Simulated scan of single mutants.
Amino acid sequence: MCEAFLEERDQRSPEALCSQHSEKLQRCRDSQTHTNHRFRPMDEVAQDLKELLQKSLQPFQEKLKLFEEVQVKFDQTAGHMKVQAQHTETQIKEQFKKLHQFLEEEEEARMAALREEEEQKRRMMEEKMEAVSREIAALSHTVRATEEELRAEDWRGCSAPCWRIHSCPQEL
């Protein structure tokens, strides 16, 4: 306000005029229409206005200080939140890394157990197949021997023990 007043005063003529009467301030002061007016030197009025402005400015300065403190706290909180988020992200990654490792180890263990089971079943099957092969070989040998014996024996010249097994045609 003071600066605006001083600026306006500087733009006027060297002698200040009353804004209401457009007369020289000295004459305006002496006029009967201004008998109730108080007149004081400009620098005193300017100083009073400065003090009033300073008092009016104080709540705004205090509010500004509070806002700056709040902003600092918000900045600190934002920084803390960022650090927490990074820490949590690191923990999550570590947990998932451990989980992946556990799952890989579990997969390897299960695959090894599967291969072991497969190997045991294969061996057992081979043993059974060998046993069946031995049985087949023994049975085949018995069948061949019996067939050869049947072909080699002459029923007409049957020996004595033959009648015990079957009826010999010679004895008929």
Rank of each mutant, 00 (worst) to 15 (best):
Q120V: 10
F102M: 11
E104M: 14
E108A: 15
F102A: 11
Q95F: 07
Q120P: 01
H100G: 02
L99Q: 15
E94Y: 00
H100T: 13
K98L: 05
Q120W: 08
A113C: 08
E107L: 04
E126C: 09
K97T: 12
L99K: 15
E127R: 12
E106A: 03
L114G: 00
E116L: 14
Q95R: 06
H100F: 12
E118Q: 15
K121E: 11
A113K: 13
E127A: 14
E108N: 14
M125P: 00
E94F: 00
E108W: 05
K97A: 12
E94L: 00
F102Q: 09
M111G: 01
R122V: 07
K98Y: 01
H100S: 11
L99S: 10
L103Y: 00
F102G: 06
R122G: 01
E105I: 00
M124A: 06
R115A: 12
H100Q: 12
E107N: 04
E127P: 03
A109Y: 13
A112G: 05
K128L: 02
M129E: 09
E117F: 08
R115N: 14
L114M: 13
M125A: 10
Q101A: 12
F96R: 15
A109V: 05
E117D: 06
A109R: 15
M111A: 11
E105H: 09
Q95M: 05
K97C: 09
E94S: 00
M124Y: 03
E107I: 05
A109E: 14
K98V: 02
E118I: 12
M111N: 08
E118T: 07
E108L: 11
R123I: 03
L99G: 09
K97Y: 04
E117W: 06
A112T: 07
R122M: 03
E117K: 10
F96H: 10
M111Y: 12
F102L: 07
Q120F: 03
E107D: 04
F102C: 02
A109D: 04
E104Q: 14
K97L: 13
E119K: 09
R123S: 02
